[in-house]
């Protein structure tokens, strides 16, 4: 397993790491005046817990990921949180975060394999494709007799894309029980609250009806995230794919960004950056 940080990490260290990741997110988006801070901030606790504590990962990076847990980001627009966590777990230098969305960078606006950024296994950005890819990877693990888990993350608004429901049927039909798909339920999308744009109804009922094992957790409470992921792991391997409905606040950690779709895809100005960074103390050192 990869360690460039103490392991296991205590709760406080994980929280501090998430704060630094949030700081990275805001600074990255500010630097290029583009990108998606809202969903990135909301998923920071989950991504830190997953990569720093929960996933069993091999040192280095190889595309096939045989013999380790692997992760797919389906809602690729929250690339800032993905890049920050990948850099801070050692997949590439933290200094490279400064190249986010700039010309000749491996850190594309949406994650890509095309520039060979370690840690990324599929391009995402056009929504709704990641669950299928995660299912395929879980199927490959089964064929390879590899017992490791496949994790994926999806937006709630992203579930409006029909391909997800094809993948949900597929996962249950083929009993892909090593798959743990987390849905970031923040209730927001570009044009407004999800229940106004396209009401998703009860996601719990829907995933249950599709034959999944469904769990719910608070995605912005590190302790709850760790417990939720532990429960998901315990539920894996029992014949059903596992879904975590993760309740988060979009923009979590920066007060003026919290709970509104306004910060889905907008960058802070200089003054707003100062306000944000004052709320996010530097814990691991800025890039």
């Amino acid at each position: 397993m990869r360690h460039n940080f103490p392991h296991p990490m205590d709760l406080n260290t994980l929280k501090q790491t998430a704060t630094q990741v949030r700081r990275d997110i805001v600074r990255m988006v500010y630097a290029v005046q583009s990108g998606h801070p809202g969903g990135s901030l909301g998923c920071a606790d989950f991504m830190v817990a997953l990569y720093f504590e929960v996933m069993k990962r091999k040192p280095g990076f190889d595309m096939d990921g045989i013999g380790e847990d692997i992760f797919f980001l389906s809602n690729g627009h929250i690339s800032p949180v993905f890049y920050s966590v990948l850099a801070r777990t050692g997949y590439f230098p933290v200094s490279e975060l400064a190249t986010f969305r700039k010309i000749n960078s491996r850190l594309q606006g949406h994650p890509a394999t095309h520039e060979h950024l370690p840690g990324v296994r599929i391009a995402s950005g056009s929504l709704g494709q990641g669950m299928s890819v995660a299912c395929g990877a879980a199927f490959a693990k089964r064929l390879n007799k590899d017992e490791h888990l496949v994790y994926s993350l999806h937006g709630d608004g992203e579930l409006e894309e029909g391909q997800n429901w094809e993948a949900m049927m597929f996962a249950a039909h083929h009993k892909l029980d090593k798959l743990i798909a987390t849905i970031d339920v923040n209730g927001q999308q570009i044009d407004g609250p999800t229940n106004k744009v396209m009401n998703l109804g009860s996601l719990s009922d829907k995933f249950n009806a599709f034959g999944w094992h469904v769990l719910e957790m608070d995605g912005n409470d590190m302790e709850a995230v760790l417990k939720g992921l532990a429960a998901a792991k315990a539920a894996s391997g029992k014949g059903k794919p596992v879904c975590i409905l993760m309740h988060t606040v979009m923009g979590k950690g920066v007060d003026y960004m919290e709970g509104t779709h306004e910060w889905h895809g907008s960058a802070p100005n200089e003054k707003q950056l100062e306000v944000a960074l004052a709320q996010l103390p530097e814990t691991l050192g800025d890039y």
Partner: peptide, 18 residues
């Protein structure tokens, strides 16, 4: 099943694992 979009994604995922 009759779900071609999913099939393409499944195929992409299967390559991750050789």
């Amino acid at each position: 099943g009759i779900a071609e979009a999913n099939m393409i994604g499944i195929a992409a995922g299967l390559t991750i694992g050789g």
